[in-house]
């Protein structure tokens, strides 16, 4: 999650706006389903990870004892980011839809609009500084790996 210009960062909420616009297309049209499904599946999570990315990437995760595969840790981090993007997005849909129906303001467009707004705010937010997760101690990032 590198630092990107605002115009690039606004692509995620723009995807939400495109999804909202796509709802005007005929029902069950692939051109309508694709942007909606794509944004709901990845948009909010992507926006959230952009903010937290630098702070998260600063530290090593717990890993296996072996260390022969040089790209292993990088790939694991990527898988982790990918699954967080998806699962955060799905969770956001669940939470927002439930909140809206609880206050009797539920509609599909309201859910999509709120998620788009959230991603827009997230796009405008500065990233969390990497120092948040920086170790101040000399201790290893994870317990020593034993074989």
């Amino acid at each position: 999650m590198k630092h990107r210009p605002l115009a690039i960062r606004l692509l995620t909420p723009a995807a939400g706006l495109v999804a909202m616009g796509a709802t005007a297309l005929p029902a069950a049209s692939p051109l309508r389903i694709a942007p909606v499904a794509l944004f709901l599946a990845a948009g909010p999570g992507f926006a959230a990870l952009r903010i937290a990315g630098p702070a998260l990437n600063r530290n090593r995760a717990v890993g296996p004892a072996e260390n022969w595969d040089r790209n292993f840790e990088r790939d694991s981090d990527r898988i982790e980011q990918f699954l967080l993007i998806i699962l955060l997005s799905l969770s956001a849909s669940v939470i927002v839809a439930t909140a809206l129906i609880a206050v009797e303001l539920f509609s599909g467009l309201a859910v999509l609009g709120l998620l788009t707004l959230a991603t827009m705010i997230a796009a405008c937010c500065p990233q969390l500084p990497s120092t948040i997760g920086k170790h101040r101690s000399a201790r290893a990032p994870s317990p020593p790996r034993k074989g």
Partner: peptide, 22 residues
């Protein structure tokens, strides 16, 4: 425990599917 169902209801509305059975 409506979380799953509300999200799916939103998806049904947004995609214009007749029902979730689609």
């Amino acid at each position: 425990w409506p979380g799953f169902f509300t999200a799916q209801a939103a998806l049904v509305e947004l995609t214009g599917a007749e029902t979730a059975a689609s």
